[in-house]
Design a protein around this nucleic acid. Structure first.
Lengths: 196, 196
DNA sequence: GTCTATAGATTGATAGAC
DNA sequence: GTCTATCAATCTATAGAC
């Protein structure tokens, strides 16, 4: 389901996956290190061999999760072809679909990163800005070409990303729409919003 | 700022306002009853005279906050006049502006209500459905009149509410856009998205 | 209604055996 | 690298004085 296979060694991966599940449901502060270690099949002290603190574990999740989300957004921009409308449809569609498919991870990276240390937050903010700038760039190029009519580029980019982010808040595994359904709808809505 | 003046007696109100501030920053589980009582100028035990448990305090915040949000959405539907476009602009615009202006309260009601007991969650869910149904109703009537072209009413209503909800996640008091700016932009984006 | 004091459980993290 | 045992701090909530 979640592609965490590249996290090594295996006990560190099991702890990370257990932490994502727990953080997504109860939040960072609502999850104890015992919860995490227990869900990974370890004793209460087992976590500390692989992560120095609970905060470091959240940071690892946040950083890798944000990097994957950013890479997905960049890949979508390429996949969308040369015209801004196709790019916007792909970016916003894939972004929303990703937040549905990986809703557990997405919940943690979108709603828990403010619990990180100041230093770690600064690293995450850079990754978030990179994603925003991709969307702004597409809206700007579409506007420059006369294909888009947008009231305000920065605010519109933010609003479009917002609807995708919020998918992580409400999406459940038993939801009637597939992640692909959601991606198609959100891509379509984005293109309709900006058409000249 | 926040209109909690009707909460009586005054110590109960001070505790409630202190809890909102703390829950918005650190979350429900990240906030201790000592934090709340201390910020309200009381001893650690002071909270329990006015609220039986910490969960009951969160429920009070969630219920009143949701009722006010729902009443605001209903008022916006009336304020928007008779045509669906005006109604949609008013509802989505006011909804987003409300989440900016009351971003501290909005953060708590949107992101902490899943920490409530099962019984209390059931009460909150009803209020949330009432808001969603207002938006669905406007999209349906606009579609029936031939003024709107919407790919899917339920999914579109959800996506539009999502962008407003997410304002509570990112809005800060020192943000360059005023709540009114945000309301105007989000109302405009909603109308553009559905125009036939 | 607010206080001090405290019960009883749980927390993040460490020490040391194996 | 994982365990058992444990520390010191903190948690929610209560008891009882005023």
């Amino acid at each position: 389901m979640e592609p965490w296979d590249d996290i090594e060694p295996a006990p560190a991966r099991k702890l990370l996956v257990a932490a994502i599940e727990a953080f997504a449901v109860r939040g960072y502060h609502g999850t104890s290190t015992r919860d995490i270690a227990g869900a990974a099949g370890m004793s209460p002290a087992g976590m500390y061999v692989h992560y120095r603190t609970k905060e470091e574990l959240l940071f690892r999740i946040s950083r890798v999760g944000h990097e994957r989300c950013r890479d997905m957004v960049r890949a979508a921009a390429t996949r969308g072809g040369a015209d801004p409308a196709g790019q916007l449809r792909a970016i916003i569609g894939d972004f929303a679909a990703w937040h549905a498919q990986h809703h557990t991870t997405a919940r943690v990276i979108q709603y828990e990163h403010e619990q990180l240390s100041t230093d770690h937050q600064a690293i995450i903010v850079v990754l978030r800005r990179e994603m925003e700038s991709v969307v702004r760039g597409v809206l700007a190029s579409g506007t420059a070409r006369g294909e888009f009519d947008v009231p305000e580029i920065a605010g519109t980019a933010l609003a479009m990303l917002s609807s995708g982010i919020d998918v992580a808040r409400w999406y459940r595994d038993d939801h009637s729409r597939t992640p692909d359904d959601i991606g198609k709808l959100y891509g379509e809505l984005a293109v309709r919003t900006v058409r000249a």
